[in-house]
Nucleic acid binder design. Structure first.
Lengths: 344, 344
DNA sequence: GGGATTTACAAAACCAGTTTAATATGGAAT
DNA sequence: ATTCCATATTAAACTGGTTTTGTAAATCCC
């Protein structure tokens, strides 16, 4: 592979001239420019990515960091990624998926700086060592979701207003007369579950009510979403037969809820109302009856996160900015007023 | 940020000693090793990724190249990615998503070598400039799917046996007595559509039959999958009311087919049999009746592709290897024998 | 028309690592 | 005691770019 020196020699100019042709930083006469480009083309030369990055200290690569224990994107992550990707592509950044297990990364021989200008963190936890580590070494990042509380004021992030979202969903059901609402929440260690719980509680307390906290269930990430939704409803309905509504963490959970309802002979929405938080549904028309849901706009979140990060990268005077995307409740046909008359 | 020289000075050793501590290439006495590591830790030092890569000529990054016109992964791609990711993670490679539009990449000031050791190409086209370009500059790659014909013998790839898969699906329907089968094929310019067509035709011709070629429809990638499936069935059933079976490119297409069937008052499988090619279904239980499908194992394909690429990267004596993953027809409840008696 | 500024290019220093060649030390083998 | 060899360490060269500094020629300004 030809290098800059080879091209310089071939074109009969100095290395710095070739450099300036390719970086465009200093002016070069058109005649020389053409001669250099011609030589470069003949020698099939392109500037070495690393040599350049090493001295400019800029990689034009953004890292995407996910929970290091799982190495698998789900539907939920996919929407973020697509948003991030769109922004990266339009601003000329590449996206590096960071999945190396920390066991690997901590081996002395593997220990290196990360080849990125900044990173986007997915699925923040209430105590998150990925964040700790990056704060400590002063690396730039943006979080999708709410950061661990101790960094909430210090880090840029994009998030839905999850308290609000949960409150809206809960209030809708309360207004329909439901009182025993099963809340299938996100995984407990994820920050989002705290906000959802808060919104849920808030909605009750604003009406002078208080929910049975046993009806707040946290997802177990070892079980598949649909399966967890199914099992939870089957189990809880047995213990609390007066449940008349379910709020599900995702539409995939809701899928399991639907299946359980069918199996229990419960009609949706007559016997059971269902709402789900969701990103961009894959199969929007696949629920019968269509699923009432809180639209979370994952793709927008991803795009805004990338935008925010890149803004930080190019800014000289850093400032911590946080973006909130409002979600909205989309009414379809899976919720109805509570049945009057005798309980089942 | 501290560099190797700083650490060397702090630990009272030479730069090359520090280098060897971190690379593990030459032996260092335990006492010195500890001293260096301590200094490094105190100075919060880690070796610079680029400086190292520049001289070792190894990045331990794999590129994932998708169709540059679309900057969006679909469900179908997600399964590949997860497979690739799994392999990368276990072998210590990072994954770089390459989405920069060629308009960007071809600007002189943006022209650089790619910071990867090798690449995985998604959705190969019958004429594919991404492949051309990489072959010309001698870059290592592995393709998921069948390469353009002219490179079929020259490039490593992993693929399903798509001729076989299509033949199996078609034969199953022909054996059930169906003769007018609507084939909703992949996008025409994708190589996979050619193989699917071949298998479809082959199945007919083996029985001395020949299909109405008007019943082979190619997907339009401008329309969403489910929507395309829906529209196509609505349109074709009007023109060819004697269609009794549909083979769909993906399960998402099948979703649209189901919807169309419902709208037309056709019962599945009594009036219409449906088969889909699919990767890892997100909602396996979501079809009523459950969808008979050709399981394509996207995740395995992705993993094998990464394995194949990494194998190439570390091998001294290059050889072109191609991997075929057999798919299998999973019978569920969406196909049945053709109805006897009067046509509708 | 003479000084100031701009333009076009080159030489050398620099970025942060690795690799090579050279040297010192200690132990085993002859 | 001398040779041989393995181990441990270093100085210097090298990777392939960019940036700084320097300088000659061209253009600008009054």
């Amino acid at each position: 592979m030809a290098n800059m020196g080879d091209v310089a020699k071939d074109a009969g100019v100095s290395k710095s001239t070739v450099s300036n042709v390719f970086s465009g930083k200093r002016s070069i006469s058109e005649a020389v420019r053409q001669r250099v480009l011609e030589s470069a083309n003949r020698l099939n030369y392109r500037p070495n990515y690393f040599a350049r990055s090493m001295v400019t200290k800029e990689t034009r690569i953004i890292g995407l960091v996910m929970d290091s224990r799982k190495v698998k994107f789900n539907q939920y992550n996919l929407s973020f990624i697509n948003g991030v990707l769109r922004e990266c592509s339009s601003q000329g950044y590449r996206l590096l998926i960071d999945t190396l297990p920390s066991s690997f990364r901590n081996k002395v021989t593997q220990m290196t700086s990360e080849p990125v200008d900044g990173e986007i963190i997915l699925d923040p936890l209430t105590v998150d060592e990925r964040v700790e580590e990056r704060v400590k070494s002063g690396r730039l990042m943006t979080i999708i979701g709410k950061p661990p509380r101790k960094y909430e004021a210090a880090l840029p992030y994009v998030n839905n207003d999850n308290v609000q979202a949960a409150e809206t969903a809960t209030s809708y059901l309360l207004e329909l007369g439901h009182r025993n609402i099963l809340m299938i929440n996100a995984v407990k260690k994820h920050t989002v579950s705290q906000d959802r719980k808060a919104g849920f509680m808030l909605s009750y307390s604003k009406r002078g009510l208080s929910p049975d906290e046993e009806l707040i269930v946290y997802r177990d990430d070892a079980v598949s979403s649909a399966e967890f939704g199914y099992r939870t409803v089957m189990k809880w309905m047995e213990k609390f037969p007066d449940i008349t509504a379910v709020i599900a963490d995702t539409d995939q959970i809701a899928l399991g809820v639907y299946r359980a309802a069918m199996e229990l002979g419960l009609s949706i929405p007559d016997d059971l109302s269902v709402i789900a938080f969701n990103n961009d549904t894959v199969y929007p028309g696949e629920f019968h009856p269509p699923l009432t849901s809180v639209e979370l706009n994952g793709e927008i979140l991803g795009q805004e996160a990338a935008k925010l990060l890149i803004e930080q990268l190019v800014a000289k005077n850093k400032l911590v900015k946080q973006v909130t995307i409002q979600s909205r409740l989309v009414l379809r046909a899976s919720c109805g007023p509570i049945k009057q008359g005798f309980p089942v």
